[in-house]
Amino acid sequence: MSQNNDSNEEIQLVIFRLGSEEYAFDILTVQEIKRMTDITRVPHTPEYIKGVINLRGSVLPVLDLKTRMNLLPTPITEDTRIIIIKTEQVFVGILVDAVSEVVSMKCSEIEPPQGSGSIVTENYVKGIGKLGDRLLIILNPQSIVDVV
């Protein structure tokens, strides 16, 4: 998609915050956004797996995106949200600091990820979107979920 230069094509993005940076998921991968809830720790899992939650009767794993991407930890606040995303095989909850808005963006405004200069592990980034003077890091949900 990042390569798609058809200027008329638009995608919708769910924008959320990790620390002070702004990130986004394609809205089509987002199932719902939940307030913080009780998370049950699961032993013997990688650090970035926060645990499991009860989503209307199903048990769902929750990933801490900051730990996954080696960002500095921040405390859980009123604004903390769990974004439920759907990837090919699984539903997963993603713990983020805050969800701000949904925006539409032309594909032509999205640039492919740069080779270096980012603290974010390259694989996870689908592209960088420019929204006025804001920079959105658009993430690839599949690679976040893939167990390395």
Binding site: V42, H44, I49, G51, V52, V59, L60, P61, V90
Partner: peptide, 23 residues
Amino acid sequence: SLGSLLKSIKVIAGATILGNGQV
């Protein structure tokens, strides 16, 4: 089931939801 992401954990056979909604 804990789902495919967590299935390889040996000591845990699965999960259940308690009366208070907790897992």
